[in-house]
Design a protein around this nucleic acid. Sequence first.
DNA 1: ATAATATAAAAGTATTACTATTATTTTTGC
DNA 2: GCAAAAATAATAGTAATACTTTTATATTAT
Lengths: 229, 229
Amino acid sequence: MERLLKTIKIAINEKIYLKDPESSQLGKRIIEHSILMIDEIGFESFTFKKLGVVIGSNESSIYRYFENKHKLLVYLTSWYWGWLEYQLVFATNSMTDPKEKLEKTLAIVSKSTVQDNAFTHINEVLLNKIVVNESSKSFLTKEVDLENKEGYFVIYKRMVNRLEDMIKAFAPTYDYPSSLASTILEGTLHQHFLKDHFPTLTNCDDKRTPGDFIADLVFKTLNQHNSNG
Amino acid sequence: MERLLKTIKIAINEKIYLKDPESSQLGKRIIEHSILMIDEIGFESFTFKKLGVVIGSNESSIYRYFENKHKLLVYLTSWYWGWLEYQLVFATNSMTDPKEKLEKTLAIVSKSTVQDNAFTHINEVLLNKIVVNESSKSFLTKEVDLENKEGYFVIYKRMVNRLEDMIKAFAPTYDYPSSLASTILEGTLHQHFLKDHFPTLTNCDDKRTPGDFIADLVFKTLNQHNSNG
DNA sequence: ATAATATAAAAGTATTACTATTATTTTTGC
DNA sequence: GCAAAAATAATAGTAATACTTTTATATTAT
């Protein structure tokens, strides 16, 4: 998989950036260090000026890649979902049994991220932390409808729709396949957050993971549905 | 209920404000118009300066009530959860059947908010919209652990724990009562958001509500659990 | 070698998120 | 009803943010 991914590029909607950060060394440094910095100080405190200082570059040069830090966040989360989607499709493509396929899918979307060395300038473990802690801010804005229309969130939506399809294949008459799919993704992220900051609001920890909870929830729901109509 | 609530005050942790906004006319105007304004322009664009202009008061006077807009958001969401908690306890207190009680609870926490005239300066419908669109930003911060330790989120946590207790009463051996409880609250808000902005990611609309989805999810899960162990 | 492009440096602007000081108004305690 | 205290308003000021613009320098492509 590693070798294959080295030739693969996660395709991000061109409207999100002014200049493709994958097209230059500076662009890659922007991505690499924005991940480190947002993880370290949080999205609110993160600025292009501070980023410029640590990558030894000028604020104005960063503005030639991204209009503002919000679009950079949209880029980073899109990249993450594209990367996860790739893993998902790769791992489940050959599977035929709907149950196995759904199980594998849940395992992939809810597992703790491990470093993937295929993309040397992207730290996937930290990017996953950013998705847990910051990604809601990319769509909880007044501009969400406009940006959605422009296609900023297509990768995420495609991911939810893939999950929806797997749910339908396993339980064709279930009434809420897309609501369950979106709940799986958001719910998993939220349980990861609670595990780290509000342990009394979750039963998840290092032994019973958010993935275990979600798998239990999904299969209890769909099995009950399949057996009782 | 209306008359009773007129004598009730939602108790908010005193560390969240510098001066209790319920203690003066100016304070109430701050709350009233911050709700209108955050709903209208969004939390990012909302400033104390703009609020001062519309309430005909000075920026510096607002700073005597709240240190910054983040604490005001924490106050507003706390008030909302306290208000919902009150309705929940009031409506379910006399119930004895665990199933009925859980059903009623789900109905209350997931229903579309209607205006409550008991608190004249608070528009609960708009406040509910703010909770859907902005409340995640109150805890997705680098300061969350510190603020949690200071008790900023006690009301929300108490609400999740009440839900957890109802789940336990109905399904005493279920493994994930608090994870399910937190998923119910966050999931409901998220489905409301999707319904308004990403209709392809949810099956909920005006006919099949987020409440219907969540009730279906919860009872399918817990019934399956109760019958299969 | 020249032109085109990318990056860096510097300066400037409007706004934000405050703090501090002083003046004025309102409330309260006697 | 008056003085003291408290609350609010007005004004000014600061440092940082979120940019934009201009110009200079370096890099790359033809």
